[in-house]
Amino acid sequence: MKKMIALLLAGIMCAGLLTACGGSSSPAATDTKTEEAAPAETETAGDEAAAVDTAAASEETAESMTFTVGFDAEYPPYGYKDETTGDYTGFDLELAEEVCARRGWTLVKQPIDWDSKDMEINSGAIDCLWNGMTYTGREEDYTWTEPYVDNSIVIAVNADSDIQTKADLAGKMVVAQAASSADTALTNDPGDGSNDENLNLCATFSGYETIKDYNDAFMQMSAGVYDAIAVDIGVAQFQLAANEGKYRILDEPLSKEQYAIAFAKGNTELRDMVQETLNEMAADGTIDKIVANYADFNLPEMLIIGK
């Protein structure tokens, strides 16, 4: 009996390990493809015409390559669930679709728990973070594309609130999404005094809290739990549009910020490919066409790629 139990346990562990290996074999395969493409490009470096050919060739070999974009599906308009189709869409995902179409990659839209984004990207479970991701202040943490959107962090309040300026926030309850750029802007102390203005402002609040997502924050503010929300302007505009007359935005922004696409640190090869395609899309007007779908959110005004 004892032996039987031991054998069964051992069997289960083996099965577990086998499944583990089986499950992780596909990214290894993806890796190999990218590695194969890399030396080819280095060899022909310096000869531009040849480089184009090799790029075309490497595209062919990478025909079945998947490109996994990690995003927060509760972050409209950059990534969210479409009302009518139920599919994941948004400005960033539309851009990613176009990049993949041009590169011949298969796009995998992977909604992730935003708090786990670093583990997700470092482990290779996703290829990039493309979701209105703030570049400012995180320059050294990832390998970035050039910024493509300029986003301010603003303060949203209930329309009937007596808060008009940042100074009026003294003694009020303020909230931001956990691990968001607004949260960073209010609480990050780089130690060199560069963020003291926002830190001092935060100190005047009666309370500052973080919350899992902004949708909750707005619902709770209208319920009176919070007086003000520190939030990226795109998200704020979306909430204003969806709930007409309910909220307004203070004139003074908390900070100006830029968005870019983040890759695992050191993955310049994939970054360069995406950047190159994005540049093409900016040059031929495709990005302008896509961003026009998001005029409601002020996105065309925020776009900086190709400007």
Binding site: C21, G23, S24, P27, D31, V108, N122, S123, G124, A125
Partner: peptide, 23 residues
């Protein structure tokens, strides 16, 4: 989280999205 990320952080195996369901 441990089950999902362990293959990478312990054994250095790159993860794939398909591994999520098994994890």
């Amino acid at each position: 989280i441990v089950v999902f990320f362990m293959p990478y952080y312990v054994f250095g195996i790159k993860l794939s999205t398909g591994w999520r369901v098994y994890a």
